[in-house]
Amino acid sequence: MNAPAYAAPPAAEIIDAQVHYTRRGWPGRTATVRAVDGVSLSIMPARTLGLVGESGSGKSTAARVLLRLLEPTSGRVLLNGHDVTAVHGRELRALRRQTQMVFQDPYSSFDPLASLADSLSEALRGRAERGAERLAAAAELMAQVGLSPSLLSRHPRELSGGQLQRAAIARALAAAPSLVALDEPVSSLDVSTQAQIVSLLHSLQAQTGLAYLFISHDLSVVRRLSHDVAVLYLGRVVESGPVSAVYERPRHPYTAALLSAVPIPDPARQRSRPRIVLQGDIPSPSNPPSGCRFRTRCPWAMPVCAQTDPPATTTEDGVTTYCHLHSDGPRLAGESVLTLGDRPDTTA
């Protein structure tokens, strides 16, 4: 991510993280699942990094590593410039408060038996000790996310999805974090609610200088909120860079396919857009394809793609892409995939 040079260290950073699971089976059938396989991400304060990819691409796993909710098999995690990979126990619990998460389904992210006041005061532990103080702080947080403090006595099921997602954001803020990971925070909400949550997140960032990690498979919402974006496929970053550059000139076929898959609410424009429909599903991370992992679904796959890992190509607008189209062939050399007119596998 070639963010502008800040004096401050990144709010959060993971370097070459790997998360491998071993699935035990009969002897000889033990499989290693590489959910995240060498991912580096870095997020500056007051910036948003969008993390996109299909389910199974490893984006949630990478986020959980960043939040120190999951131990990486290897790699390092840095928060505000400090290496926290080796922190454990009580210290880790204190550390976790620096990074918070907002989940996709607001209902399952709140204890159904606890009132909002209860859930929020749990989040305020350590910030305010006495009950009355906590309640006052909770009311303040509710106001900050645009909810009436009178809702504090309610239970999760008594609120609408949008209201509860606001409460989830309030809970995240309660820990006074420097980074909030947003895991598909609006994809379960109605359209009008989505817009409101996005603008709430926007204004909170402007007020507090929070850094966001925005995880989604929906690229349109990511664009609204992110400064930079990293596209993940099978546990690896395939393309990353400033959001406008990636969206307008996708260098990787996977990015182009993801972009074309989101229909825009305008029939005339939607009909004239090129469609790249990927076939099949994302392959199993226990047995990824050799060479470029995307080659099995790539309309432009070449023989070289099966043989070697694609090298990084960095362009002057700050985008880094891992694709043989730019180095071998050589056909693109940093140009957008969309300049390839003769798409072999697309329908117009």
């Binding site: 389904d105 999805g161 209201q163």
Partner: peptide, 27 residues
């Protein structure tokens, strides 16, 4: 079943437009 898919969620449309702390919707 979708989390936000409920009748009240439109209230959000309003909430977002008013100054922080004021809630116009009848909860």
């Amino acid at each position: 079943p979708r989390a936000g898919d409920d009748v009240a969620s439109v209230s959000e449309a309003l909430i977002g437009e008013v100054p922080v702390g004021e809630v116009p919707v009848d909860e």
